[in-house]
Amino acid sequence: MKHQTFDHSNFHQICDELARQDSDFKRVIEQYGYPPLWNRKPSFATLIHIILEQQVSLASAKAAFLKLQEKIGHITAEKLLQLTDEELRGCYFSRQKAVYARALATAVINKEIIIEELHLLADDEIRISLKKIKGIGDWTADVFLMMVLNRCDFFAPGDIALMKSVREVKQLSSDVLKDEIIALTEKWKPYRTVASYLLWHAYLSKRNISQ
């Protein structure tokens, strides 16, 4: 099944199209340049990294991920399940994220999910497959679809930085509701993911945060 994705061959072209439609995106590109084409390998390690990014800073999540890598080398489901609670705490995993990581590892070992084959599925099927696993909700599924599979038309309303960036870039007041922001994103279809990259890029650049 063919799914609409973006890559280096069309990423800037889509950014330019969004900039033509929306002067605020044009201003983002003029001020900060094109966003990086964030892309991650569809793997167990990548999903662990995304779980670690839930509700914490990118720097904190990266520190935990690198500590885990230092502890076990190549991150696999089998190796992770061999770690004790204490060893996971030593890798900066909270108790909750240790539970989530083990749930994912167990699902991978039992072949309840084959991460490397998710790209073959339709968007909704991917979301359903991922959300069957404890600790994976809409935000994690959105990030996987957007940043790992580079599916074109997603927006993650559960992402605090993204929502904050919409308010900043569009100069919206703080009392604008979440549903109103989601409605606003409709005009960016079918490229809401790339629009989100522009917004994330503006947020990170404004704060001098490296990804």
Rank of each mutant, 00 (worst) to 15 (best):
H8T: 15
S9T: 15
N10I: 06
H12W: 03
I14D: 01
C15V: 09
L18V: 04
F25Y: 02
K26H: 11
R27N: 09
R27F: 10
E30G: 02
G33R: 07
Y34P: 10
P35M: 01
P36M: 01
N39F: 07
F44T: 10
I48R: 08
H49V: 06
I50M: 10
S57K: 07
L58Y: 08
S60N: 10
A61M: 03
A61K: 04
K62W: 09
A64F: 11
K71M: 02
K71Q: 03
H74Q: 12
H74N: 09
H74C: 04
K79F: 04
D85W: 10
E86H: 12
G90L: 08
G90R: 11
Y92H: 08
Y92D: 12
R102V: 11
L104G: 08
I109V: 11
I109S: 10
K111P: 07
E112P: 07
I113Y: 01
I114G: 04
I114Y: 05
D123N: 07
I126T: 10
S129Q: 10
K131R: 13
K132G: 09
K132W: 05
G137H: 00
W139H: 13
A141K: 11
D142F: 06
F144L: 07
L145Y: 09
M147T: 11
R151F: 02
C152G: 02
F154C: 08
P157N: 11
L162F: 04
L162W: 05
R167S: 11
E168D: 03
V169W: 03
Q171F: 15
Q171M: 15
S174H: 13
D175C: 14
D175A: 12
D179T: 15
I182F: 03
A183H: 08
K187W: 05
K187T: 01
W188G: 01
K189A: 02
P190F: 02
P190R: 01
Y191C: 02
S196A: 15
H201A: 03
Q211P: 09
